[in-house]
Design a protein around this nucleic acid. Structure first.
Lengths: 345, 345
DNA sequence: GATTAGCACTCATCCCTTTCGAGTGCTAAC
DNA sequence: GTTAGCACTCGAAAGGGATGAGTGCTAATC
């Protein structure tokens, strides 16, 4: 049995109201507040049907109805309207987001902050995949160690310390850097790996060093599992669903183990947007949370990252989507500024 | 009026018990559990005195007594005994701390995690000041930008993107790097700054670039205000003082604005250890928290950082101190491993 | 003079009952 | 198909002992 137009309308009203108030919605509320031209009795009948169909739950007999995750699913798929972010909020977003843009880290931190501030939920981001390699540079540190710096297309650069034999001079390292850069430039991770395999043969006495290099290089270009940035977890505590301390504990504990968040976001990489509701997340401690994600790219880069907002299932989905969309735009502007910086800053 | 030995003993018993149970302590408990050889009536009289002296508070007439911050102050200054960390815990610390030590960031993250796991409170760290400069390297990225990487004594290395004129070739940058390294090597931040002032005269057409460089370099060597790492905030939610949602909210919100934490830790930089109790912190939302800090150094480095543990005033001060001390030792070992890495890892 | 036993008193907490009201489901009338 | 009306349900709030932990005070004891 499918829903007729009236049922849709009533269901939407219930969800809207519940999102707003966090209180079970009664038939009277719907008939009065959302002038349906129907009496509460009629609404009651419809609600009863909707409950039977699994769209509504009743906490107890004499309470109103609460949307089920199935209802939210329907809501985000068909009922809600996503408007673009009001100019004032867009303004605010750019403001929060303006400051301190020295590194990708900073950008992500500022972005999650802005997300959480504008939505009152928690912002989550994972750095964009590295994209093409631009440059490899080995910087001598001590007699026996060097720092490997990789610069990739979208400005993500990481570094790790690797050991070198004492007979390898700084000049050697410089030449090796240039050589590697020349050979690997413009390649993606996969291509770099196979190129390195080939080059391995040409290496004579540098073979040991080279193996090390490969190791670190691959590690650096992989999307970094630890690079989940989370902002505004405490915002969640202000929503009534988490005035129950037990729930707050289990949720915040889950949010703190970044591994799970990382894999959640990684799963959604590349999707232009995704909405996952409560049980669909299949994560203990997050049964009554939803995750909304979008993909983004920094500046003109090809590498894409994923960012999202975590909130209660009773989330302002439409608004969250519009915030995420605005943020996606802001991010694609941002790094351009860095790539072609203005001399008169 | 000073306290006599018996008052000290009773006060210590009360604090110990309260730290353990988080419940107001009654006279009977003291007389029975901590065999004083005194009846509860006597204890009551003493407690009454202690209350008058400001060491104890009474939540309401018929409740037991609760230590005031003044009592904790006395406790940490004179009464408590710090033992060294039990071997089993030390073992555990090293275990948690073992993994993934690629960058200073990782070390700090792992350390705060370990701190929080071993104490059940929140761990906080600020990266060590950079120490002496080891190397400056300019890595070309695009026609008009370069990455500046600085390597400092204790392995802290940071990078920022700077613009360069299009007529500066990669070779130029390489030479400039070597030149700067030669001139600045082994200098501390202050020395670097004055050295740069002198060098500025010698710069001809690179003057604009050079000014940029100075700017970024100084920024990089300054202790980074954003580099506060916090671990295990959710642990706090498990303590009874924060089953009150209101308190939990205000505390977690405070912990999330890292600026305040940064300045707290910065104030305590260089102190071998410090304990600050509740109102002494003078931070809204943290009146019933304490902060215990110690200084640490990574490996053999001269630069010192500060780390600490934040918990309720009813904190296991002795244990926290011993954990911090063990962690300080672990940290001073750690980076040694990286500086002189083992080829057969 | 210090210590203790004894006792009246206080006050939060637990548990029970009552009341209240929001909301439902059903039925009969429109 | 819709609605008015009404009995019914059940949680939340309010009230009211009973309980017991703990105190302060006093008078007796060491």
């Amino acid at each position: 049995m499918d829903l007729d137009a009236r049922k849709y309308k009533i269901l939407k009203a219930i969800i809207d109201d519940y999102i707003l108030t966090a209180m079970p919605v009664g038939s009277r509320t719907i008939s009065k507040k959302y002038d349906m031209g129907l009496s509460s009795a009629t609404i009651r009948n419809e609600m009863s049907d909707l409950e039977e169909l699994g769209y509504l739950d009743q906490p107890h007999t004499s309470a109103g109805r609460v949307p089920s995750w199935k209802a939210y699913r329907l809501y985000v798929d068909q009922l809600m309207r996503v408007a673009s972010l009001p100019p004032a909020d867009n303004q605010r977003l750019r403001e929060i987001f303006q400051s301190s843009m020295d590194s990708v880290e900073d950008v992500l931190t500022a972005a999650t902050r802005a997300l959480s501030e504008l939505t009152d939920y928690t912002g989550v981001m994972i750095a964009p995949s590295a994209g093409c390699l631009k440059r490899v540079q080995l910087v001598p540190i001590t007699e026996t160690t060097a720092l490997m710096v990789t610069v990739t297309e979208n400005g993500v650069h990481k570094d790790s310390i690797i050991p070198v034999a004492p007979d390898v001079s700084p000049e050697h390292l410089y030449m090796l850097s240039n050589y590697l850069t020349e050979r690997l430039q413009g390649k993606t991770l996969d291509q770099v790996m196979s190129a390195l395999q080939e080059l391995l043969g040409e290496m004579g006495r540098h073979r040991a060093l080279f193996l090390r290099l490969m190791d670190s290089l691959v590690k650096q270009m992989e999307p970094d599992k630890n690079a989940v940035v989370v902002g505004g977890t405490s915002k969640l505590l202000f929503h009534p669903e988490y005035s129950d301390i037990e729930r707050a504990r289990s949720l915040l504990t889950t949010l703190e183990t970044k591994e799970k968040l990382a894999s959640l976001l990684a799963q959604r990489a590349g999707l232009s947007f995704s909405i996952t509701i409560g049980p669909e997340l299949q994560l203990p401690g997050m049964q009554d949370c939803s995750l909304v994600t979008v993909s983004y790219a920094l500046g003109g880069g090809t590498g894409t990252g994923t960012m999202g907002v975590i909130g209660p299932t009773r989330m302002q989905y439409a608004r969250v989507l519009s915030v995420l969309d605005a943020m996606r735009k802001a991010l694609s502007d941002t790094t351009n500024r860095r790539e072609a910086p203005n001399e008169e800053r």
